[in-house]
């Protein structure tokens, strides 16, 4: 189930956010070896203070098992700053129709491989469906996501191959980071849903979606 948490509703989701920051610490600090700051077991950076929206996947037992952070590319975002090496000195894309997706991860300890609920593929797809439906409702048509080659392969296998890449992959900690472009469209969402077998509404609450039906 997907929760979208931003600075308007974060007051109601404090523990969910903390669990998400803990998942990010386990993934980006412990497993991928990125130079991120971890405080009290939580990975929080300066972009979390810039009112992003977090797309958070919660499993049936209430554990945070996946997440993604969204920022506008018209304002401060990671590819314009700490990830600028990926851009090879080029200025980043800037468009009101393009959001940046960072800190995209799933809990590989808790989740299984293979198909069906509680798998890496299922939760990855669920986070993408949530993010793309949220973006579409906001009038945003594409996303640029900072991912590693493992995630890139998961996306390619899951009917969700990026339509392009920007800059070049760069070593970051134990893995390589790259910037991939994906359209936030009905077609892509349908492909992800078909692959993952997710045909229900993924959102826990609907009020985040503009004028939701």
């Amino acid at each position: 189930m997907i929760y979208v948490v931003d600075s308007l509703n974060s007051g109601s989701y404090r523990s969910l956010l903390e669990d998400m920051y803990r998942l990010r610490a386990r993934v980006f600090h412990d497993r991928l070896g990125w130079e991120v700051k971890v405080t009290d077991g939580m990975e929080i950076d300066e972009f979390d203070a810039m009112d992003p929206a977090h797309v958070i996947s919660v499993d049936d037992e209430g554990h945070v098992v996946g997440c993604m952070r969204l920022l506008q590319t018209t304002g401060p975002h990671m590819l314009a700053d700490v990830f600028s090496s990926i851009m090879d000195g080029e200025p980043p894309l800037r468009s009101s129709s393009l959001w940046e997706a960072t800190r995209f991860c799933v809990d590989t300890n808790r989740l299984k491989t293979g198909r069906g609920r509680n798998t890496i593929g299922y939760v990855t797809s669920e986070v993408m469906i949530g993010a793309f439906e949220f973006a579409m409702a906001a009038g945003v048509t594409d996303a640029i996501a900072v991912i590693d080659p493992v995630m890139n392969r998961v996306l390619q296998r899951g009917g969700n191959a990026p339509h392009g890449y920007v800059g070049t992959p760069k070593q970051m900690g134990k893995v390589v980071a790259m910037a991939a472009l994906m359209d936030c469209s009905e077609e892509r969402i349908a492909k992800i849903r078909d692959y993952a077998g997710i045909h229900h509404d993924v959102f826990a609450e609907q009020d985040m979606l503009i004028a939701a039906e």
Partner: peptide, 13 residues
Amino acid sequence: RSILSLAPVDWSR
């Protein structure tokens, strides 16, 4: 309120 949001905010929110 809207200034804190990433996405457009419907006033019903």
